[in-house]
């Protein structure tokens, strides 16, 4: 008997139609994301200045990059910023979520209040905090007018402290969002487990430390991944809040890349700094996405 598996026209059409529909998006991503990444990687090995040139000079750009004081400052700043930003946002977010989860009256009002900064542009956030922290018209002056003459808060003008003002503004913007993630995690915990723990005699503190917080592991992971990639991509906030200053005190790799590529005409070095940024994110994101996507049917 013939095993004729030739499908009819309708079936064959239905077979390739989905792929045809997906193809443009995928092609665009392949070209504009992965193609461009490849292009930038290639550029980072060339001596391009104002325009791309394909004179390969090996790892020279990378060597130069890591010899630059400017880049070192940016990397150190990023390390400080990312660590504090992620840690404080998570701590604040977790605390607010746990507190809000105690049958608080007015939760419906507080939640959107904590969250609304998420809806703002970093440029708006930066503008607001820039003036709020400006000693001449902002917080310091207000305190003086209210009679606290010795109040002193000039971090934004202080090269050693300015990076922390970026942390403050960034935490302000995203900690409410982290709170929402943790709150969703808390609400997803099966109450029977908590009842069982209470019957077992766990105190409130033990209940949270031993049962609830460990069960929030997925929320911690998601929050970390999102904050981490936001930290490395941070650009607008610095531009609006400090413009990278005072001096270069708040330069981050993102602002470094922009100024080297587009204002200093050191495209090769700019490209190599972008590659370093990508590799840093990929080191966290690739394993994360891999574990999220594998073994799903």
């Amino acid at each position: 008997m013939s095993t004729s598996t030739t499908a009819d026209f309708r079936t064959r059409l239905q077979d390739w139609l989905p792929k045809v529909v997906l193809a443009p998006s995928f092609a665009v991503i392949l070209l504009f994301v992965y193609g461009f990444i490849a292009f930038t990687v290639v550029l980072s090995f060339t001596g391009s200045k104002m325009l791309p040139k394909f004179d390969f000079i090996g790892f020279t750009n990378y060597a130069k990059l890591f010899a630059l004081q400017h880049w070192t400052t940016a990397v150190v700043n990023l390390a400080i910023f990312a660590t504090l930003y992620i840690a404080i946002s998570m701590a604040v977010g977790l605390m607010l979520a746990i507190f809000l989860d105690q049958k608080i009256r007015g939760e419906g009002l507080l939640r959107p209040l904590y969250l609304y900064p998420m809806a703002l542009s970093f440029i708006v956030t930066g503008t607001a905090w820039k003036w709020f922290l400006d000693p001449g018209i902002g917080l310091e002056k207000t305190m003086h007018l209210w009679g606290w003459e010795s109040f002193h808060f000039t971090w934004i003008k202080d090269s050693d402290m300015a990076i922390y003002t970026i942390v403050i503004a960034a935490v302000w913007q995203t900690s409410g969002f982290v709170m929402a993630m943790f709150l969703a995690g808390l609400r997803g915990i099966d109450n029977e487990i908590l009842k069982a723990a209470q019957i077992d005699g766990a105190s409130n503190w033990q209940l949270y430390r031993r049962i609830v917080i460990p069960m929030l592991r997925p929320a911690f992971l998601s929050a970390f991944v999102i904050l981490f990639h936001l930290a490395i991509k941070s650009y607008d906030l610095v531009v609006a809040l400090t413009g990278g200053g005072p001096g270069r005190a708040t330069e981050l790799p993102a602002t470094f890349m922009y100024s080297y590529t587009f204002t200093r005409n050191q495209m090769g070095i700019g490209a190599s700094s972008a590659v370093i940024m990508l590799m840093t994110i990929a080191a966290i994101m690739v394993p994360y996405l891999y574990s999220e996507l594998k073994e799903k049917p």
């Binding site: 998006s25 995928f26 991503i29 392949l30 504009f32 994301v33 992965y34 193609g35 461009f36 990444i37 292009f39 930038t40 550029l43 791309p52 990639h229 490395i232 991509k233 650009y235 790799p253 993102a254 890349m257 922009y258 590529t261 587009f262 495209m267 700019g270 490209a271 700094s273 972008a274 590659v275 940024m277 990508l278 994110i281 990929a282 994101m285 690739v286 996405l289 891999y290 996507l293």
Partner: peptide
């Protein structure tokens, strides 16, 4: 996975070719 990763790239990496 390839489409998803594109959400997380630092856009600096595509600025020049774009």
């Amino acid at each position: 996975g390839l489409m998803l990763f594109s959400c997380f790239i630092p856009f600096q990496i595509v600025l020049i070719p774009m």
